[in-house]
């Protein structure tokens, strides 16, 4: 009889932390660069769909990097349960390189997830995808190069491809180097055509001429890397490709969705946001350290096909691809 209170007390002791955790809503500080968009929707909706109660606090840099130090100080003062970072630039500024972390200037002492970041390894946000090397994890949104290659081949097999790029953008150079390597192992070739610079700035006027040169060199595909300069001039680029009868394939959505690009294998920001939410859930509710959660891309991407371009090029997608593709 006398034992019972003891047992009850022990049980309470075990249960107590869990109860406490359930009662307190985890607070997530969302540090945004360009304001709230679809990736943030996906992140928020992930918790809503699973009825996970979280408190979201938003702080926006409004595309101004100079605001970042203040935002970091605010975060350090607030000490949220998790920080959400949007975009490559903001992420690099707020976290610093994994091997040159400065506690005075960079976020420290709290778990971080990042979203919409290109190549976090080369950008030294994490040490490696499998083992981030710091309490930071997140998602990438560009499909791996090998997957993009397979997607191009499933539309139309090829031996020669060409790509324009801005020589000032490290991202594009890295992607094209990797693609050239992979193509070489399959006995195919990639012509990389840098957009000429004037006063250190790439010249948009040169784009149509480069596309013509690519076609004359025998290219069967025009590959469009995730390049900010090209994105700005996507209409000129894709129209030139269409003019030359050259099918174009893009690694991000806008070239197909909002220009004349033929096809693209892209991540939907919404899905990437939800995936980031999944990683946040593991940290907040699963008790997993961010350092133990790999950085990943989606396992399934959206295959966009612009039917009007296909019709004009008379390059219709195979039926097999139409099963999974999304026509725009």
């Amino acid at each position: 009889m006398r034992r019972r209170p003891l047992v009850a007390a022990a049980a309470l002791g075990l249960v107590a932390p869990a109860v406490a955790r359930a009662q307190r809503r985890p607070r997530i500080l969302m540090m945004l660069f360009r304001g709230w968009e679809e990736a943030c929707d996906g992140f928020r909706d992930y918790f809503a769909a699973r009825r996970l109660d979280v408190e979201l606090v938003v702080s926006n840099a409004e595309e101004d990097l100079s605001r970042v130090p203040a935002m970091v100080r605010q975060a350090q003062a607030m000490r949220p349960d998790l920080v959400y970072l949007w975009g490559t630039t903001l992420t690099m500024a707020a976290l610093g390189p994994w091997d040159a972390h400065d506690p005075a200037r960079h976020l420290n002492g709290m778990p971080v997830v990042f979203n919409i970041v290109t190549d976090p390894v080369r950008n030294r946000v994490v040490r490696s995808r499998a083992a981030p090397g710091r309490p930071v994890t997140g998602t990438e949104y560009i499909a791996p190069v090998a997957v993009q290659l397979r997607a191009m081949e499933s539309y139309r097999p090829f031996q020669r491809a060409a790509a324009l790029f801005n020589p000032r953008e490290r991202n594009s150079i890295v992607t094209l180097e990797e693609m050239a390597e992979q193509l070489a192992t399959r006995g195919a070739v990639l012509h990389s055509l840098p957009v000429p610079l004037a006063d250190g700035r790439p010249q948009p006027d040169a784009i149509p001429g480069l596309v013509t040169a690519a076609r004359e060199a025998g290219a069967e595909w025009l590959y469009i890397p995730p390049d900010t300069f090209l994105n700005e001039h996507r209409a000129v680029l894709t129209a030139a490709a269409l003019q030359e009868g050259l099918p174009s394939f893009a690694a991000s959505e806008r070239f197909v969705a909002f220009a004349d690009g033929l096809a693209g294998l892209v991540s939907r920001y919404y899905s990437v946001g939800a995936f980031t939410g999944f990683k946040a859930e593991q940290i907040l509710f699963g008790g997993v350290s961010p350092a133990a959660i790999p950085v990943e891309t989606l396992s399934r991407f959206s295959y966009l096909v612009r039917m009007e371009t296909a019709r004009r090029l008379r390059a219709y997608p195979p039926v097999e691809l139409l099963r999974i593709a999304e026509a725009v």
Partner: peptide, 15 residues
């Protein structure tokens, strides 16, 4: 199921 999964690839929740 295939159709639903494709539908979600557009970037929406199942609902």
């Amino acid at each position: 199921v295939d159709t639903f999964e494709r539908g979600m690839n557009i970037g929406v929740r199942l609902a």
